[in-house]
Every structure is written in C-alpha cells, then in structure tokens.
Design a protein around this nucleic acid. Structure first.
Lengths: 248, 248
DNA sequence: CGACACATTGACCAGACTCAAAGCTAGTGG
DNA sequence: CCACTAGCTTTGAGTCTGGTCAATGTGTCG
C-alpha cells in the first residue's frame, strides 16, 4: 500500500487529524503552508538524540521508527514504535530537551517541520492545537499500557499485547488487513521494547506458534487466532482511542 | 508546610503555571473565575475509575494521589504519584474515556473543575493551553522514565530512582527539604508502582538501609547519601523539567 | 488495650537471564 | 547466479533475581 501523499507529504498530517475531527478549509490550508523538508533515511538511523534540543519536529511519512533510551552497559529500552502519520517528537513543542532518542527501524521517509511554525500554527488554531495535544495524550495512554505490561504481565502476555496493539494501529492507518501486518522488528527489538531478552522472546514466540496464535516470519505478523490473542493479553483497545474505526 | 491556598484553592494552579511562565493579569483572572468544588477525601478513595467519562478534572490541593490500573487476579499497577498542584486527569480534556483509575493515597483535598470550563479556558488563552499541554508532556516523560526502570533496571535501582524523583518533585513544590520528604506509601504501594512484590521491596529497603543510603520510617523518607542514591539509580533529572529550581 | 494494617522473616520456587555455540537467510558483490 | 557474509534466530545448560506462601512481629489509632 504505497501512501499517496503529495509532494510535500504534509497531507499525511491533514488526513490523520481529519480522521479525528473535521478541519476547516482555513486550518487545512494553514497546514498545507507549513514548510517541510523531506528526508529518506536508512534503517537503524538516529533521527534525534537524547539530550538534543531539536528545532524541527518529525512527521513519519513511511516506514517505522522507535523512541528509545540507552542505559549503562548497553542496556536499551524501546519506549514506543511509530508508523506513518505519527509525530514522535511532538512534545519538543513545549518541552525543549529530548529525554529519549528517536531512530528508524527500517528505511523510512520523514518530513521535518520547524518547531516554530508548528507552535505558531497551534497558537493560531486552538482546534489544531487540541488535536495535536490529543495525539500526545494518546501517546501517554500507550505508555501507561506498556508500563502495566512490564510491571504486571508475563512475557507471553506482554508479547501478545504488543501484537494486538500494533495490529490495530496499523489497521487504523490502512497498513494492515486480514489479520496480517508488517512487523519489521528483530527479536532483539521486541525484547528491548518489552523488558526481556532476545533469547526469552525467541522461546515465547515458539510457544505462541505452538498454540497456533500467530506466526511471525519475514517481517510479517500473521494472527492465526485473534480472539485467543486478545484473551491471552487481556487486551482492551480503549486506550488507543481509534474513535472512528471498529476494534473487532 | 500547610498550603496557604485561598478559599477556592485555585491559586494553587496559578502558582504552578506561573512558575513555568509569566501569566498576564487577564489569564490570572480567567483562572480565578473558574468554578471549583472543593472536596476532602479519605485515604485510599477512588476519585475516578477506569472506563469513566468524567465531567470534571481534579486539581490536588493537598495530600497524595495515584493513577493505577487493575488486572485480573487482583494485580495492580500504579502508574504515577501525584501531589499538590497536579491535575492527574487533565487528559480527559481531549480524550474522554479514562484508561486508568485515580485514587488518594492518604487524606487529600482536591478541587474539581468542570471539564468544559477548562476546555474553554484553553481555547481562549493559547498560552494557558500550552502550559497545561506542557504539564501533560512532563507527565509522559515521567512514564518513559518509569518504563525504562521497569524494563531495564534492577529492583534496587528502580527504588532508588523513584526516591530521587519524588524527592525532587516534592522539593520543587516546596514540600521537602534538607534531604527529607514525606512518603506516605506502604511497601505494597511501592511494589505496585515498581512492578515488584512487597516482600522483595522490603528486602531491598533493608539492603538500602544497610548501605546507609536512606531510611524510611513513619511515612518519612530521609536521604542519607544523596549522591550515592543518584549514582545507584543513574538518575538524570532532565525529564522532570523543573526549569526554575536546581536539581543539586 | 485491642484490632488491624503493615513490616519482616524463612523456606522454597520459577520465570527470565547469561553465556556460548550452532543454524538460517537475506542481501551483496563477483 | 552463486558464494559469502553479517546479522538474526535457535538451542542448550546452568544461574539468579525476584516471586510465592505462610507465619510472626510491630506500630498506630480509635
């Protein structure tokens, strides 16, 4: 599914915000007039780094990215995954120092929008500000879901939960269907996202295949038993706030 | 340290927002005119519940509260702690269904502000909207810090990290000083916040006392060795964005 | 002075980690 | 078009952090 974004790519943002609330022509035009710089990035490239004070925000047009944090001895915690339509460093609008790094997972296309222009936009159009704010709030809700998993769920449940989440997010973005979606993550990536080791992730994935829940091959996730997957993870999609779409 | 808030208590909010940016007289007055309902609550009382669609937001004037989520078999994950000046359910401004519950930890005084009035306020004063938005962003940064701990830190490091965080937050609110602060949490509360069991928390606290890092008695935390505590937890206060105060 | 909630202890257990060695597989370049 | 390689996945054996269960202290507040 090649995204049919125009030359500037910014209509990706219009489409996303427009899926939550209706935009006025004026608002739409203001977004279209945002100056953007498009970049094509390789896999596993940093976009912004922990401690930076970026002057631009990054809208993902294609590909996957993740937020992550590095600790001593090479320990890494992945904080979130991002797909087309996301602005993973939107918080730098109001909080200037990055407290995490942002990197691509696979080849990606991103649009950089100057912070100042976005800020001005949100000052001029309270409705757009509210939509962007809302986006950061859904983000926070996702953190809460991950925290709950890391604190109180087993490895099996956590992995199942992540698969449910990503499948629904990709579906809402029109990037998944028929119980199948891209999943360009290594087992090490999954481990770093879930607070596990790659060895353990490997074993649990085998167990899930054994239960005929999912298959994960060639960077594609196939959900064999959606209902069981939901049940295994006690998944409740409310926190994603995908208002306009059904969550099956 | 009795908070000297006026009859309405809303100046707590003015003080907090004013500590980030200067407020105009008009903005200050608009906040003062917000209708509020003050409530005194007992310890361990729910304020809002998972799944609710609250019509009011809750400003804490005194006491402690926490966000939490309940899973099957009585598993509980505490997502954050809140003190005077916090509005823990501010996100309901733009995302209507609660994805967690909110409860007091000890006796508390809270002010309920109608969602609609807050929304109107933020539509009319983009600067205030930005300050409130910023608050929710700092919140999200705190979630990221907790996630990192639960995913990649040992129990010892996690507990130390939480103590650093709470001490600095309380200090910024004028509720701590001299390496000592209130900590009205049971070991079970700590466990539920950190993804541990109370038995293990107990053992680790003993170990920390053994290392002369802290003492925790009668709901008071005394930090005996601040520098060692920072080091043990690899604590970096950036994410708290306590701009105006030093972080030692 | 009770009662009840909370803290502490002990013995045992298990989910997840570590380390290290093989297998695969998807790109790359010849 | 195939061989090579780097990165990823899989496996095994042993270990350990943190969990479970259950009993016993301890302190606080009505």
């Amino acid at each position: 599914m090649p995204s049919s974004f125009g030359q500037s790519g910014i209509d990706m943002l219009i489409r996303k915000l427009g899926s939550i609330a209706n935009l006025s022509d004026e608002e739409r035009q203001a977004i279209e007039r945002l100056p953007v710089r498009i970049n094509h990035l390789d896999a596993r490239q940093d976009i912004v780094r922990d401690g930076d004070m970026p002057s631009h925000c990054c809208l993902i047009l294609d590909g996957w990215a993740c937020r992550y944090k590095l600790l001593s001895q090479g320990k890494r915690q992945i904080l979130s995954f991002h797909i087309a339509g996301d602005i993973p460093d939107l918080q730098s609008l109001h909080v200037h120092t990055m407290d995490y790094s942002l990197a691509t997972m696979k080849r990606a296309t991103v649009a950089f929008i100057p912070r100042e222009n976005l800020k001005e936009l949100s000052a001029r159009f309270p409705n757009l500000a509210a939509l962007l704010w809302r986006d950061t709030l859904v983000d926070a809700a996702t953190f809460r879901a991950w925290m709950t998993g890391m604190g109180r769920r087993t490895a099996y449940e956590r992995i199942a939960h992540l698969f449910c989440e990503m499948y629904l997010k990709l579906q809402a973005a029109g990037l998944a269907g028929d119980y199948r979606c891209p999943m360009p993550l290594t087992q090490t990536d999954l481990a770093d996202a879930l607070g596990l080791t790659s060895v353990h992730v490997n074993r649990v994935l085998q167990e899930m295949r054994g239960h005929a829940l999912i298959t994960l091959r060639r960077h594609t996730l196939v959900i064999e038993a959606w209902h069981d997957l939901l049940q295994a993870s006690e998944f409740d999609p409310t926190y994603l706030h995908l208002e306009k779409r059904a969550a099956a």
